[in-house]
Structures are given as C-alpha cells and as structure tokens.
Amino acid sequence: MLHIKCPHCGLRSQNEFSYGGDATVKRPELNKEVSDKDWDNFVYLRKSPVGKHLELWQHISGCRQWIKVERDTLTHEIFKTLKANEEV
C-alpha cells in the first residue's frame, strides 16, 4: 500500500485516496473548435509510461482535494506531491 504525502494533510495511506489518471492532460477550452482527433486524444488516449508519471489523486477520505503526485510506475517511488494549482 502506497504512502502518499497529501500537501494539505501530510503522509496518509493509499486507501484514503482515489486515483485520477494522467495529470498532464489539459481539457480543451470551452466554446472552442476542437478537431475530432484532438478531442479523441483528450477523451481516450493516455500514455502508459514506465518510470516517472505525473498523476492525479483525490484525497477522498480526507480533505477531498485533488492533488498531483509524481510517481515511478515501476518502483512506486513517489518523488513529490503538489497541490492542484502547483506545477512541477
């Protein structure tokens, strides 16, 4: 079970969090033309990297904040955790 440092609450066990996928995906802006391809990429296509991955987790049984976690998908090492509005 991972040990994730919530930037708001501190170190907590993984079972307090829920996973939210790739944190680098940007939603296309509202009311803007988006090509079929770009939209499909946004909705469906995700990379599955080996190694460093910046991902979203929600501290669902805690402060309910969405946070960013930089994690190694191979070793589970967590390099850093960030608040929703922080960049790596």
Binding site: S18, G20, L56, Q58, Q65, A84
Partner: peptide, 9 residues
Amino acid sequence: SHLEYYLQL
C-alpha cells in the same frame, strides 16, 4: 468528486 475535479483542476 466530478464537481470537485472541475472546480479544483
């Protein structure tokens, strides 16, 4: 969670 996702991120 859905609402929180859009509001926070």
